[in-house]
């Protein structure tokens, strides 16, 4: 199947998905479930990754600054800006593309091959709308919270390094992370993450929804979902950075 066919099928699926829910009550109920499953359940992994990455960033920045003219608070500043600008949006979303994307694609793919989606279609239920819309809505709504949580955990990781090592003093680190703070960087990160969350949820749903065959094919759909979401995130990252930061 060529790229144009994929784009066409994806567009048709999104058209079916973004119609008004047949039952609003069920839609809200499903969305809350998805917020818990895709969003809240990602809090622990976000905590672990962000904490350690924040710690490593602080250490590496300190170890690589050799110029004596650079003030020591630069370590905090660089850690903060790296976290805000790239890690907490792009890198976190790449990691979540693996966790959430494979979860969505395998769940919907299994529903497809076990004829659960066919069962909904026969009943007259808009299966794309019923299954996919709550996933996209739930994940897009929760991602800003994950990003802010990641920023907080990353900065705390750096702070632990300042407490536990003699690379930088806690006071200098705290000064550094507050120095020349640009609030737009937070908004920039949030905007990017919302778009990336949409890409992860919709592309993974697409691969799951059109899965066919057996368990092996669900695995393939899951892999394709993660790979293609990641590629799209990386490509869009360049475009969004150009638009939002220039």
């Amino acid at each position: 199947m060529n790229l144009l066919e994929h784009v066409g099928r994806y567009s048709i699926l999104m058209y079916q998905t973004f119609s008004l829910p047949q039952k609003w009550k069920l839609f809200f109920k499903q969305t809350v479930k998805e917020v818990e499953k895709l969003g809240a359940n990602s809090l622990p992994i976000t905590f672990i990754i962000s904490l350690f990455m924040g710690a490593v960033m602080t250490m590496q920045t300190q170890m690589n600054i050799e110029n004596p003219l650079l003030p020591s608070y630069t370590v905090g500043l660089v850690t903060r800006d790296t976290l805000l600008l790239e890690f907490c949006s792009s890198i976190l979303c790449l990691i979540l593309a693996g966790k959430v994307g494979s979860n969505i694609a395998s769940e919907i793919g299994t529903m497809r091959i076990s004829e659960q989606i066919d069962a909904m279609d026969i009943m007259g239920v808009n299966s794309a709308n019923y299954i996919i819309l709550p996933k996209i809505t739930g994940f897009v709504l929760f991602i800003p919270l994950l990003v802010i949580w990641s920023m907080f955990c990353g900065l705390i990781g750096g702070y632990f390094i300042s407490l536990m090592t003699d690379l930088i003093t806690p006071a200098t680190y705290i000064y550094g992370i507050q120095y020349w703070f640009i609030p737009w960087y937070v908004y920039y990160s949030l905007i990017k993450s919302v778009i990336f969350a949409f890409i992860i949820a919709s592309v993974s749903s697409y691969y799951g929804y059109y899965a066919y065959g057996g368990a092996l094919d669900v695995g393939k759909a899951s892999t394709n979902a993660v790979v293609n979401s990641s590629i799209l995130i990386l490509m869009l990252n360049v475009i969004l950075t150009k638009i939002l930061l220039s």
Partner: peptide, 17 residues
């Protein structure tokens, strides 16, 4: 409307997990 008049029993039952 017609679909609400149909009932279907699938080979693998197709119950929602």
């Amino acid at each position: 409307n017609l679909r609400s008049e149909l009932g279907m029993l699938f080979q693998g039952s197709a119950l929602f997990d």
